[in-house]
Computed example of a mutant assay.
Amino acid sequence: MPGPVPRLAAQAVLTPPSAASLFLVVVAGESREDALTVRDVVADLESLLKAVGFRELSGSLSCVVGIGSEFWDRVSPATKPALLHRFLPLSGPVHSAPSTPGDVLFHIKAARADLCFELGRLLVAALGPAATVVDEVSGFRYFDARDLLGFVDGTENPTDADAEEAALIGDEDPDFRGGSYVIVQKYLHDMSAWTSLSVTEQERVIGRTKLENVELDEDAQPSNSHVTLNTIVDDDGVEHDILRDNMPFGSLAAGEFGTYFIGYARNPGITELMLRRMFLGEPPGNYDRILDFSTAVTGTLFFVPSREVLESLADQSENAEAPSDVTGETEQPNTYDLSLNIGGLKGVSQ
């Protein structure tokens, strides 16, 4: 497999977890002018980022932009990332993962919520009537990086060179080297049902101890735990990771408690296989028990271009642009046989 990708080529995918975040998913209007406006705002993101970030240099403000498959066809039809496609909905024996609309994702992070809000405000103002915000989630750090279920989230995230290897595209798609694929899902928790479980039973659902954050011993690890079904190993015994940047969110007035899942990967098939195992089961029917308490209400896949590719979108030739009524692919690619030197993927049985 190709080596790590230089960070300078990538957007801020590899920045460490933050204290605050804002996730904005927008859909562009149907006209050609709408598409061009959104494209130009996306391509000029760096100027808005500097306008806010320079006012508080210690705020660690960053923003990652992802572009959905159908919108990519509208603004850059001449060439396309090899594995970019719409999010594939999943319908399991008990639980389902929906596919929901999204042309552009803005993943904003900072040490303070006001910085996230200000950048989001400027982005929405710049988009104007050319785009509609279809999902907005403000995330926050919850004590020692725990989700609202009370467990530490993201413990197994790769770091340093391993994070680059997991999240950033290399020579397998040279025109888009330094990019990434990101899948987002919003999960809502049934806290009454969850808190009715004993701590021991909660630990069996997650696959880790609640207080110490230690993975359960192999002989005590249920086959339907979250840990088991999210562990992906190829035929050569190599484990394949994604880079998560999940954040808790909630509304006391609405009685809403949730986790915003966001997973970056150089190969979206890794994330998709995790989701298949969660919702369909491994073996079939042995689904992730966390889904009895957490319901997925959104699901979208985006491509995160390198900085160079992102900025070049505004330079696209007028003659190269597709008509405004482009509706996307007529077929979905096979994201499980990707010939990216990762071998046959399978799950760990425990």
Rank of each mutant, 00 (worst) to 15 (best):
T231D: 04
D241N: 05
T327I: 14
T195S: 13
D153M: 03
G139H: 02
R112L: 10
V104L: 02
T295K: 12
Y187C: 04
T15A: 11
F106K: 00
A130V: 00
A28D: 06
L301Q: 15
G328M: 01
E56N: 15
E318V: 01
N334L: 09
E30D: 14
T200L: 09
T79C: 07
G343R: 00
G255A: 02
A193Q: 13
F87R: 04
E56R: 15
E215W: 06
C116G: 10
L88V: 15
R146I: 10
F151I: 01
Y142A: 11
D147V: 00
G68S: 05
A167P: 10
S21E: 00
P283D: 13
W72V: 09
H95C: 14
A265V: 03
T200F: 07
Q11V: 03
F54G: 03
A97H: 06
E239T: 12
Q185M: 06
A320S: 15
A296E: 04
E164H: 06
K186W: 03
R289S: 10
P77R: 03
H189F: 15
L22H: 01
A113Q: 14
S349Q: 09
P81G: 13
L243N: 01
L211R: 12
G170Q: 07
V227Y: 12
D236P: 02
R74H: 09
F143H: 10
Y181M: 10
V133W: 00
A12Y: 14
G281L: 01
A9S: 12
R276H: 11
P93F: 05
E311L: 14
D171N: 06
P222H: 06
A78N: 07
G179W: 10
G150P: 02
N213E: 07
D325W: 01
E164N: 11
S69P: 03
E311S: 15
E164K: 10
R39A: 13
I108H: 08
L14F: 04
S91A: 15
P158R: 02
A43Q: 07
V205G: 03
V52M: 06
F54R: 15
V75H: 00
R277P: 01
V104F: 02
F151E: 00
S138W: 10
P158N: 07
K346I: 03
R7N: 10
R244T: 12
V238Y: 08
D173I: 02
L211P: 03
F117S: 09
F106R: 01
E212V: 14
Q332I: 09
L24I: 14
F140Y: 12
P77Q: 06
E218K: 03
R277I: 01
A110R: 00
K346H: 05
E331V: 13
S324D: 15
